[in-house]
Design a protein around this nucleic acid. Sequence first.
DNA 1: CTTTTTTTTGCATTTTTTTGCAAAGAATTT
DNA 2: AAATTCTTTGCAAAAAAATGCAAAAAAAAG
Lengths: 249, 249
Amino acid sequence: MIKEERQRLIIEKLNRDQKINLLELSQLLNVSYDSIRRDVIELEDKGLLKKVHGGAVANSYLSFKNTHNYSADQQEVVMLTRKAQKLFYNHQTILMDGGTTNFHIAEQFPKNLEMTVITNSLPLAAVLNEHPKIETILLGGTYHKRYQITIGNQVMKQLEHIRVDLYLMGFNGLDPEVGVTLRHYEESVLKQKMAQAAKKVAICAITEKLHTVETYKVCDLQDIDILITSLKPSDVTLNAFRQQGIELI
Amino acid sequence: MIKEERQRLIIEKLNRDQKINLLELSQLLNVSYDSIRRDVIELEDKGLLKKVHGGAVANSYLSFKNTHNYSADQQEVVMLTRKAQKLFYNHQTILMDGGTTNFHIAEQFPKNLEMTVITNSLPLAAVLNEHPKIETILLGGTYHKRYQITIGNQVMKQLEHIRVDLYLMGFNGLDPEVGVTLRHYEESVLKQKMAQAAKKVAICAITEKLHTVETYKVCDLQDIDILITSLKPSDVTLNAFRQQGIELI
DNA sequence: CTTTTTTTTGCATTTTTTTGCAAAGAATTT
DNA sequence: AAATTCTTTGCAAAAAAATGCAAAAAAAAG
């Protein structure tokens, strides 16, 4: 039995039962315990499950948001959020705003990461509850019910007193010509201010958002320092970004 | 059976029954009492439930609203939150902090109530999502994971620029002699500031909290303007409050 | 078709985690 | 205040994980 087949079976069983037991599985598939364990390690690296003592569980096992319907895009998001983890290390202070991508990145922070996160997103603050070593600071302001973030003058004011190592910017569209664009005006202004408060600006772009242009412009390409993408380094699309001296991950 | 599976089953049972008993559960799952207890401790650390003597109860607002078998306490809360609705009318600006009582009061706001609510509680902001005509303003600051509120200097600063019609204060203990007391120091200071920012201060006290004294004092009885209680107006306990000119509901 | 290189696999050893137990200490009830 | 019930703590046995190593299998190179 080849490795790929085993791993496929593991994922299938995991989807059925929501959990697997290593010993049981090794007997079922008639391979050594170690092989199964190594398979599970690989699958965890791919972000397809979560390893626990004695077995593995589906990724969203104990979380509130297991209602998230995983689409075809999901695979790319998982990969991107895993890549994004390279940006974070202990004793940093970072700024993160709303958006599902940022939410997923925060979800995957290592449990022992010691960091300060400043945000205007309530779901983000909620998810950071799971990370005891992360200090969360919430920017106060008018609460926007749909996006579940705070916006407005008060947020802007607080940003004036803030200087962070990194700003992880959520956005709607990214285009080599136009720059970063957004659907919501108030947010676009806010994000400009946030970018000014950070030493470096990073964005995490699923392929779908590349070459997309929305109504309100946030900033030019040159204002971005780091781009996380799932495209291969050889992809011609990335040349424009490279010319601007943007670090690619 | 792996730990994660047990923990999932605990959470599931908890969501069904609203409470669990450790001994019963250890027999049901056929593991030692200690294992269950350790699971419950872990789950409490993750904020998924609250440990009590001999068992655990569902943690928050997330679940206990859709249950029908309210305990005696809960029935009182329901009655009190109904009474509290008299305090609110259109075009007011009110200040509300954290705590389950305030949460339940906000839940029961009429859907057409037009009001501005300023709060430092994330669950409160979340529940006000259901009330389209209420404008929510969130006070920013350091996020306290356990209480799910913002605290600290930044909150204090924002309060300096605020003047509201009513402050609905959450608290732990109320005593005619000592005044209003709290378990958490930082919060007690914050509440003092909040009281100063309001024209009137109201508190909503279940009978259990009357004559309870906690570690940190927030304010004297005379700083309270309105008390919502389920005691009958004839109750002698209330005389002390009446003498201070506190309006009783 | 060999030989070399790489990958995969199973096994033994060490290290870590989990688990159940018992005794001591708190809290709750009677 | 005594009795009961539950918690906490330390400990040791058991279970599982990580690590290093060598044989087997597969892939690549010659």
